[in-house]
Design a protein around this nucleic acid. Structure first.
Lengths: 207, 207
DNA sequence: ACCTGAACACCGTTCAAGT
DNA sequence: ACCTGAACACCGTTCAAGT
Protein backbone atom coordinates (compact mmCIF):
# COMPACT_ATOMS: atom_id res chain seq x y z
CA UNK A 1 0.00 0.00 0.00
CA UNK A 2 1.45 3.35 -0.99
CA UNK A 3 -0.89 6.30 -0.51
CA UNK A 4 -4.28 6.42 1.15
CA UNK A 5 -7.13 8.82 0.44
CA UNK A 6 -6.18 10.66 3.62
CA UNK A 7 -2.65 11.13 2.27
CA UNK A 8 -4.06 12.64 -0.89
CA UNK A 9 -6.29 15.08 1.00
CA UNK A 10 -3.43 16.06 3.31
CA UNK A 11 -1.11 16.66 0.36
CA UNK A 12 -3.79 18.73 -1.37
CA UNK A 13 -4.20 20.88 1.72
CA UNK A 14 -0.45 21.43 1.88
CA UNK A 15 -0.42 22.55 -1.75
CA UNK A 16 -3.44 24.77 -1.16
CA UNK A 17 -1.89 26.49 1.82
CA UNK A 18 1.46 26.94 0.11
CA UNK A 19 0.37 27.90 -3.41
CA UNK A 20 -3.25 29.03 -3.20
CA UNK A 21 -6.38 27.68 -4.83
CA UNK A 22 -5.44 28.95 -8.26
CA UNK A 23 -2.31 26.80 -8.25
CA UNK A 24 -3.78 23.82 -6.48
CA UNK A 25 -3.90 21.59 -9.53
CA UNK A 26 -4.20 17.83 -9.65
CA UNK A 27 -0.75 17.76 -11.21
CA UNK A 28 0.77 19.70 -8.34
CA UNK A 29 -0.91 17.57 -5.72
CA UNK A 30 0.46 14.52 -7.52
CA UNK A 31 3.92 16.08 -7.53
CA UNK A 32 3.62 16.73 -3.78
CA UNK A 33 3.07 12.98 -3.36
CA UNK A 34 5.81 12.17 -5.88
CA UNK A 35 3.35 10.29 -7.99
CA UNK A 36 1.94 10.56 -11.54
CA UNK A 37 -1.20 12.75 -11.95
CA UNK A 38 -3.22 9.77 -13.09
CA UNK A 39 -2.55 8.02 -9.78
CA UNK A 40 -4.86 10.45 -7.98
CA UNK A 41 -7.84 9.11 -9.88
CA UNK A 42 -7.53 5.88 -8.02
CA UNK A 43 -8.45 7.73 -4.79
CA UNK A 44 -10.81 10.38 -6.03
CA UNK A 45 -13.35 10.66 -8.85
CA UNK A 46 -12.37 14.14 -9.96
CA UNK A 47 -11.00 17.46 -8.76
CA UNK A 48 -14.33 18.61 -7.39
CA UNK A 49 -14.58 15.62 -5.06
CA UNK A 50 -11.11 16.30 -3.81
CA UNK A 51 -12.03 19.91 -3.08
CA UNK A 52 -15.09 18.75 -1.14
CA UNK A 53 -12.94 16.48 1.01
CA UNK A 54 -10.52 19.33 1.60
CA UNK A 55 -13.41 21.55 2.70
CA UNK A 56 -14.59 18.93 5.20
CA UNK A 57 -11.11 18.71 6.62
CA UNK A 58 -10.75 22.48 6.97
CA UNK A 59 -14.04 22.72 8.84
CA UNK A 60 -13.22 19.73 11.01
CA UNK A 61 -9.86 21.20 11.97
CA UNK A 62 -11.75 24.19 13.31
CA UNK A 63 -13.53 21.80 15.64
CA UNK A 64 -16.67 23.64 14.69
CA UNK A 65 -18.64 20.46 14.97
CA UNK A 66 -17.51 19.51 18.47
CA UNK A 67 -20.61 19.03 20.58
CA UNK A 68 -21.78 21.84 22.85
CA UNK A 69 -24.01 21.44 25.93
CA UNK A 70 -26.38 19.21 23.96
CA UNK A 71 -29.61 19.93 22.08
CA UNK A 72 -31.60 22.98 23.10
CA UNK A 73 -34.40 22.50 25.62
CA UNK A 74 -37.57 22.11 23.59
CA UNK A 75 -39.98 23.28 26.29
CA UNK A 76 -41.40 26.83 26.18
CA UNK A 77 -40.25 27.74 29.68
CA UNK A 78 -37.67 30.44 30.30
CA UNK A 79 -37.69 31.56 26.68
CA UNK A 80 -35.65 34.70 27.20
CA UNK A 81 -32.80 32.94 28.99
CA UNK A 82 -32.57 30.04 26.56
CA UNK A 83 -32.82 32.41 23.59
CA UNK A 84 -29.81 34.31 24.87
CA UNK A 85 -27.80 31.13 25.29
CA UNK A 86 -28.87 29.89 21.87
CA UNK A 87 -27.63 33.13 20.35
CA UNK A 88 -24.28 32.84 22.06
CA UNK A 89 -23.93 29.21 20.98
CA UNK A 90 -24.65 30.24 17.40
CA UNK A 91 -22.18 33.09 17.67
CA UNK A 92 -19.44 30.75 18.86
CA UNK A 93 -20.01 28.35 15.98
CA UNK A 94 -19.77 31.14 13.41
CA UNK A 95 -16.66 32.64 14.95
CA UNK A 96 -14.95 29.24 15.02
CA UNK A 97 -15.99 28.42 11.48
CA UNK A 98 -14.55 31.73 10.31
CA UNK A 99 -11.28 31.10 12.15
CA UNK A 100 -11.01 27.62 10.63
CA UNK A 101 -11.47 28.98 7.13
CA UNK A 102 -9.02 31.82 7.69
CA UNK A 103 -6.44 29.35 8.97
CA UNK A 104 -5.64 28.02 5.51
CA UNK A 105 -4.97 29.98 2.37
CA UNK A 106 -8.15 30.40 0.27
CA UNK A 107 -9.94 28.28 2.87
CA UNK A 108 -13.12 30.36 2.67
CA UNK A 109 -13.38 29.89 -1.09
CA UNK A 110 -12.89 26.17 -0.83
CA UNK A 111 -15.40 25.70 1.98
CA UNK A 112 -18.01 28.08 0.56
CA UNK A 113 -17.89 26.49 -2.88
CA UNK A 114 -18.08 22.94 -1.58
CA UNK A 115 -20.81 23.90 0.87
CA UNK A 116 -22.96 25.26 -1.92
CA UNK A 117 -23.62 21.72 -3.08
CA UNK A 118 -24.74 20.42 0.25
CA UNK A 119 -26.26 23.17 2.34
CA UNK A 120 -29.04 21.62 4.32
CA UNK A 121 -26.91 18.53 4.77
CA UNK A 122 -23.91 19.72 6.76
CA UNK A 123 -23.14 19.05 10.38
CA UNK A 124 -22.36 22.71 11.03
CA UNK A 125 -25.70 23.82 9.70
CA UNK A 126 -27.44 21.20 11.80
CA UNK A 127 -25.74 22.42 14.96
CA UNK A 128 -26.63 26.01 14.11
CA UNK A 129 -30.21 25.06 13.34
CA UNK A 130 -30.52 23.49 16.81
CA UNK A 131 -29.71 26.89 18.24
CA UNK A 132 -31.52 29.30 15.97
CA UNK A 133 -33.71 27.36 13.54
CA UNK A 134 -33.31 26.54 9.86
CA UNK A 135 -33.66 30.05 8.43
CA UNK A 136 -31.44 31.55 11.07
CA UNK A 137 -28.79 28.90 10.48
CA UNK A 138 -28.78 29.50 6.74
CA UNK A 139 -28.64 33.25 7.14
CA UNK A 140 -25.76 33.07 9.60
CA UNK A 141 -23.86 30.56 7.49
CA UNK A 142 -24.19 32.47 4.24
CA UNK A 143 -23.14 35.68 5.94
CA UNK A 144 -20.18 33.94 7.56
CA UNK A 145 -19.00 32.46 4.26
CA UNK A 146 -19.34 35.76 2.44
CA UNK A 147 -17.69 37.88 5.08
CA UNK A 148 -14.83 35.44 5.50
CA UNK A 149 -14.14 35.26 1.75
CA UNK A 150 -14.10 39.03 1.85
CA UNK A 151 -11.66 39.13 4.71
CA UNK A 152 -9.37 36.60 3.13
CA UNK A 153 -9.37 38.34 -0.23
CA UNK A 154 -8.52 41.68 1.36
CA UNK A 155 -5.73 40.14 3.41
CA UNK A 156 -4.18 38.56 0.36
CA UNK A 157 -4.46 41.81 -1.58
CA UNK A 158 -2.83 43.63 1.33
CA UNK A 159 -0.05 41.05 1.52
CA UNK A 160 0.51 41.38 -2.20
CA UNK A 161 0.46 45.17 -1.97
CA UNK A 162 3.06 44.96 0.75
CA UNK A 163 5.31 43.01 -1.61
CA UNK A 164 4.72 45.39 -4.50
CA UNK A 165 5.07 48.60 -2.48
CA UNK A 166 7.10 47.84 0.64
CA UNK A 167 7.27 51.51 1.74
CA UNK A 168 3.76 52.53 2.82
CA UNK A 169 3.43 56.15 3.87
CA UNK A 170 2.05 56.72 7.36
CA UNK A 171 -0.65 59.12 6.19
CA UNK A 172 -2.08 56.62 3.71
CA UNK A 173 -3.06 54.05 6.31
CA UNK A 174 -6.79 54.05 5.54
CA UNK A 175 -7.38 55.49 2.11
CA UNK A 176 -11.12 55.08 1.94
CA UNK A 177 -13.22 54.37 4.97
CA UNK A 178 -12.05 50.87 5.76
CA UNK A 179 -9.21 50.08 8.15
CA UNK A 180 -7.37 47.00 6.90
CA UNK A 181 -8.68 44.80 9.61
CA UNK A 182 -11.85 46.50 10.48
CA UNK A 183 -13.08 43.34 8.81
CA UNK A 184 -12.72 41.34 12.01
CA UNK A 185 -14.76 43.83 13.99
CA UNK A 186 -17.19 44.23 11.12
CA UNK A 187 -17.85 40.49 11.20
CA UNK A 188 -18.86 40.68 14.83
CA UNK A 189 -21.21 43.59 14.21
CA UNK A 190 -22.88 41.81 11.28
CA UNK A 191 -23.35 38.75 13.45
CA UNK A 192 -24.95 40.91 16.12
CA UNK A 193 -27.33 42.41 13.58
CA UNK A 194 -28.48 39.00 12.42
CA UNK A 195 -28.79 37.64 15.95
CA UNK A 196 -30.80 40.69 16.96
CA UNK A 197 -33.06 40.03 14.00
CA UNK A 198 -33.51 36.42 15.06
CA UNK A 199 -34.36 37.49 18.59
CA UNK A 200 -36.90 39.99 17.28
CA UNK A 201 -38.53 37.34 15.08
CA UNK A 202 -38.83 34.77 17.83
CA UNK A 203 -40.22 37.33 20.28
CA UNK A 204 -42.83 38.25 17.72
CA UNK A 205 -43.64 34.57 17.33
CA UNK A 206 -43.89 33.98 21.07
CA UNK A 207 -46.24 36.97 21.25
CA UNK B 1 -11.93 49.72 -36.19
CA UNK B 2 -13.03 46.13 -35.66
CA UNK B 3 -14.05 45.29 -32.10
CA UNK B 4 -14.47 47.61 -29.15
CA UNK B 5 -14.09 46.79 -25.47
CA UNK B 6 -17.87 46.76 -25.24
CA UNK B 7 -17.99 44.13 -27.98
CA UNK B 8 -15.59 41.97 -26.04
CA UNK B 9 -17.60 42.25 -22.83
CA UNK B 10 -20.83 41.50 -24.67
CA UNK B 11 -19.32 38.45 -26.34
CA UNK B 12 -17.98 37.24 -23.01
CA UNK B 13 -21.43 37.53 -21.46
CA UNK B 14 -22.92 35.56 -24.34
CA UNK B 15 -20.39 32.80 -23.81
CA UNK B 16 -20.96 32.87 -20.04
CA UNK B 17 -24.70 32.53 -20.39
CA UNK B 18 -24.46 29.81 -23.01
CA UNK B 19 -21.61 27.72 -21.63
CA UNK B 20 -21.19 28.64 -17.96
CA UNK B 21 -18.28 30.14 -16.07
CA UNK B 22 -16.25 26.95 -16.23
CA UNK B 23 -16.23 27.10 -20.02
CA UNK B 24 -15.95 30.84 -20.35
CA UNK B 25 -12.34 30.85 -21.50
CA UNK B 26 -10.48 33.61 -23.26
CA UNK B 27 -10.17 31.32 -26.24
CA UNK B 28 -13.91 30.76 -26.44
CA UNK B 29 -14.66 34.45 -26.13
CA UNK B 30 -12.19 35.06 -28.95
CA UNK B 31 -13.91 32.38 -31.03
CA UNK B 32 -17.27 34.06 -30.38
CA UNK B 33 -15.78 37.22 -31.93
CA UNK B 34 -14.12 35.23 -34.70
CA UNK B 35 -10.76 36.53 -33.66
CA UNK B 36 -7.48 35.06 -32.39
CA UNK B 37 -7.17 34.68 -28.58
CA UNK B 38 -4.28 37.10 -28.47
CA UNK B 39 -6.48 39.83 -29.93
CA UNK B 40 -8.39 40.07 -26.64
CA UNK B 41 -5.31 41.35 -24.87
CA UNK B 42 -5.53 44.52 -26.85
CA UNK B 43 -8.79 45.34 -25.04
CA UNK B 44 -8.24 43.84 -21.64
CA UNK B 45 -5.23 43.27 -19.39
CA UNK B 46 -6.13 39.73 -18.37
CA UNK B 47 -9.02 37.39 -17.72
CA UNK B 48 -9.70 38.79 -14.27
CA UNK B 49 -10.25 42.29 -15.62
CA UNK B 50 -12.66 40.93 -18.17
CA UNK B 51 -14.61 39.14 -15.44
CA UNK B 52 -14.81 42.38 -13.46
CA UNK B 53 -16.26 44.21 -16.47
CA UNK B 54 -18.74 41.41 -16.95
CA UNK B 55 -19.80 41.69 -13.31
CA UNK B 56 -20.39 45.42 -13.68
CA UNK B 57 -22.53 44.79 -16.72
CA UNK B 58 -24.60 42.13 -14.98
CA UNK B 59 -25.31 44.41 -12.04
CA UNK B 60 -26.06 47.37 -14.31
CA UNK B 61 -28.54 45.33 -16.33
CA UNK B 62 -30.44 44.75 -13.11
CA UNK B 63 -30.80 48.51 -12.83
CA UNK B 64 -29.88 48.05 -9.22
CA UNK B 65 -28.09 51.36 -9.23
CA UNK B 66 -30.94 53.44 -10.64
CA UNK B 67 -31.54 56.29 -8.21
CA UNK B 68 -34.36 56.05 -5.70
CA UNK B 69 -36.08 59.00 -3.98
CA UNK B 70 -32.73 60.59 -3.16
CA UNK B 71 -30.53 60.45 -0.06
CA UNK B 72 -32.16 59.72 3.28
CA UNK B 73 -33.20 62.64 5.46
CA UNK B 74 -30.39 63.15 7.95
CA UNK B 75 -32.47 64.81 10.69
CA UNK B 76 -33.66 62.83 13.71
CA UNK B 77 -37.35 63.57 13.19
CA UNK B 78 -39.84 60.84 12.33
CA UNK B 79 -37.32 58.10 12.91
CA UNK B 80 -39.80 55.23 12.86
CA UNK B 81 -41.34 56.19 9.53
CA UNK B 82 -38.07 56.84 7.77
CA UNK B 83 -36.57 53.67 9.21
CA UNK B 84 -39.40 51.67 7.70
CA UNK B 85 -38.93 53.27 4.29
CA UNK B 86 -35.17 52.82 4.51
CA UNK B 87 -35.71 49.13 5.16
CA UNK B 88 -38.01 48.75 2.21
CA UNK B 89 -35.58 50.63 -0.05
CA UNK B 90 -32.81 48.29 1.06
CA UNK B 91 -35.03 45.30 0.50
CA UNK B 92 -35.79 46.39 -3.06
CA UNK B 93 -32.12 46.83 -3.88
CA UNK B 94 -31.26 43.35 -2.62
CA UNK B 95 -34.14 41.71 -4.44
CA UNK B 96 -33.18 43.42 -7.71
CA UNK B 97 -29.52 42.58 -7.30
CA UNK B 98 -30.44 38.96 -6.77
CA UNK B 99 -32.68 38.93 -9.85
CA UNK B 100 -29.93 40.50 -11.96
CA UNK B 101 -27.44 37.85 -10.88
CA UNK B 102 -29.90 35.02 -11.43
CA UNK B 103 -30.64 36.34 -14.92
CA UNK B 104 -27.36 35.09 -16.34
CA UNK B 105 -25.80 31.69 -15.91
CA UNK B 106 -23.27 31.69 -13.05
CA UNK B 107 -23.96 35.40 -12.63
CA UNK B 108 -23.80 35.21 -8.84
CA UNK B 109 -20.34 33.65 -8.91
CA UNK B 110 -19.04 36.25 -11.31
CA UNK B 111 -20.44 39.20 -9.39
CA UNK B 112 -19.55 37.90 -5.94
CA UNK B 113 -15.96 37.15 -6.93
CA UNK B 114 -15.44 40.47 -8.66
CA UNK B 115 -17.12 42.30 -5.79
CA UNK B 116 -14.74 40.77 -3.30
CA UNK B 117 -11.98 42.97 -4.64
CA UNK B 118 -13.89 46.19 -4.34
CA UNK B 119 -16.42 46.01 -1.56
CA UNK B 120 -16.60 49.41 0.01
CA UNK B 121 -16.25 50.94 -3.43
CA UNK B 122 -19.33 49.80 -5.30
CA UNK B 123 -22.32 51.89 -6.27
CA UNK B 124 -24.73 49.27 -4.97
CA UNK B 125 -23.12 49.22 -1.58
CA UNK B 126 -23.20 53.02 -1.47
CA UNK B 127 -26.92 53.08 -2.20
CA UNK B 128 -27.55 50.44 0.44
CA UNK B 129 -25.42 52.32 2.94
CA UNK B 130 -27.56 55.43 2.43
CA UNK B 131 -30.54 53.39 3.56
CA UNK B 132 -29.15 51.25 6.36
CA UNK B 133 -25.58 52.31 7.14
CA UNK B 134 -22.24 50.76 6.32
CA UNK B 135 -22.48 47.62 8.47
CA UNK B 136 -26.04 46.98 7.42
CA UNK B 137 -25.14 47.39 3.76
CA UNK B 138 -22.26 44.95 4.02
CA UNK B 139 -24.31 42.40 5.92
CA UNK B 140 -27.15 42.57 3.42
CA UNK B 141 -24.80 42.41 0.45
CA UNK B 142 -22.82 39.45 1.70
CA UNK B 143 -25.99 37.60 2.55
CA UNK B 144 -27.45 38.39 -0.86
CA UNK B 145 -24.36 37.16 -2.68
CA UNK B 146 -24.18 33.98 -0.66
CA UNK B 147 -27.84 33.14 -0.89
CA UNK B 148 -27.95 33.83 -4.61
CA UNK B 149 -24.90 31.66 -5.32
CA UNK B 150 -26.68 28.97 -3.35
CA UNK B 151 -29.86 29.34 -5.33
CA UNK B 152 -28.07 29.30 -8.64
CA UNK B 153 -26.00 26.25 -7.74
CA UNK B 154 -29.09 24.33 -6.69
CA UNK B 155 -30.96 25.29 -9.83
CA UNK B 156 -28.14 24.11 -12.02
CA UNK B 157 -27.86 20.87 -10.07
CA UNK B 158 -31.60 20.38 -10.44
CA UNK B 159 -31.44 21.10 -14.17
CA UNK B 160 -28.60 18.63 -14.52
CA UNK B 161 -30.47 16.04 -12.46
CA UNK B 162 -33.46 16.51 -14.73
CA UNK B 163 -31.26 15.66 -17.70
CA UNK B 164 -29.73 12.67 -15.98
CA UNK B 165 -32.96 11.31 -14.55
CA UNK B 166 -35.86 12.65 -16.62
CA UNK B 167 -38.49 10.55 -14.81
CA UNK B 168 -38.84 11.98 -11.28
CA UNK B 169 -41.29 10.11 -9.09
CA UNK B 170 -44.04 12.20 -7.55
CA UNK B 171 -43.31 11.02 -4.02
CA UNK B 172 -39.68 12.08 -4.20
CA UNK B 173 -40.35 15.76 -4.70
CA UNK B 174 -38.58 16.95 -1.54
CA UNK B 175 -36.13 14.30 -0.38
CA UNK B 176 -34.67 16.13 2.59
CA UNK B 177 -36.24 19.17 4.10
CA UNK B 178 -35.79 21.63 1.27
CA UNK B 179 -38.33 22.25 -1.47
CA UNK B 180 -36.47 22.95 -4.70
CA UNK B 181 -37.44 26.55 -4.75
CA UNK B 182 -37.99 27.23 -1.18
CA UNK B 183 -34.81 29.13 -1.84
CA UNK B 184 -36.72 32.13 -3.16
CA UNK B 185 -38.89 32.29 -0.08
CA UNK B 186 -35.92 31.56 2.15
CA UNK B 187 -34.14 34.58 0.71
CA UNK B 188 -36.98 36.84 1.73
CA UNK B 189 -37.06 35.45 5.25
CA UNK B 190 -33.32 35.91 5.68
CA UNK B 191 -33.63 39.48 4.47
CA UNK B 192 -36.38 40.06 7.01
CA UNK B 193 -34.22 38.70 9.79
CA UNK B 194 -31.37 41.04 8.92
CA UNK B 195 -33.66 44.04 8.49
CA UNK B 196 -35.29 43.28 11.84
CA UNK B 197 -31.82 43.19 13.36
CA UNK B 198 -30.97 46.54 11.83
CA UNK B 199 -34.20 48.03 13.14
CA UNK B 200 -33.46 46.68 16.62
CA UNK B 201 -29.92 48.13 16.54
CA UNK B 202 -31.03 51.58 15.43
CA UNK B 203 -33.82 51.68 18.02
CA UNK B 204 -31.28 50.83 20.69
CA UNK B 205 -29.06 53.63 19.40
CA UNK B 206 -31.89 56.14 19.34
CA UNK B 207 -32.62 55.18 22.97
C1' DA C 1 -4.89 -2.08 -4.61
C1' DC C 2 -1.98 1.29 -6.31
C1' DC C 3 0.71 3.10 -9.74
C1' DT C 4 3.17 4.38 -14.59
C1' DG C 5 3.39 6.29 -19.33
C1' DA C 6 1.46 8.18 -22.96
C1' DA C 7 -1.97 10.51 -24.96
C1' DC C 8 -6.17 13.90 -25.84
C1' DA C 9 -8.24 18.09 -25.86
C1' DC C 10 -7.79 21.89 -23.74
C1' DC C 11 -5.95 26.45 -20.93
C1' DG C 12 -3.90 31.90 -20.15
C1' DT C 13 -0.50 34.80 -21.78
C1' DT C 14 3.41 36.83 -24.54
C1' DC C 15 5.47 38.63 -28.49
C1' DA C 16 7.01 39.74 -32.96
C1' DA C 17 4.92 40.98 -36.98
C1' DG C 18 1.39 42.60 -40.05
C1' DT C 19 -2.39 46.40 -41.81
C1' DA D 1 -5.66 50.87 -33.29
C1' DC D 2 -6.57 46.24 -33.94
C1' DC D 3 -5.30 41.91 -35.32
C1' DT D 4 -2.54 37.30 -36.77
C1' DG D 5 0.52 33.28 -36.00
C1' DA D 6 3.34 30.82 -33.41
C1' DA D 7 4.99 29.61 -29.31
C1' DC D 8 5.50 28.60 -23.94
C1' DA D 9 4.24 26.53 -19.96
C1' DC D 10 0.66 24.75 -18.26
C1' DC D 11 -4.32 22.19 -17.32
C1' DG D 12 -8.03 17.79 -16.08
C1' DT D 13 -8.97 13.32 -17.40
C1' DT D 14 -8.71 8.64 -19.66
C1' DC D 15 -6.81 4.31 -20.49
C1' DA D 16 -4.01 0.43 -21.28
C1' DA D 17 -0.55 -1.69 -18.89
C1' DG D 18 2.39 -2.94 -15.09
C1' DT D 19 3.28 -4.95 -9.92
Amino acid sequence: MRNSLADVVAAALRVLDAQGLENCSMRRVAAELEVQPSALYHHVADKQSLLALMADEIVRNGAVVSRGPGPMPAGASAIAASAASAASAARTICVRLRAAMLAVRDGADVVATAAAFRLGASAVEDRLAEAVGRDGARTLLLYTFGQTQQTQTHRQAAAFGALVDPAPRADAAQPDGDPTDGLDASFGRGLDIILAGLAASSEAEAG
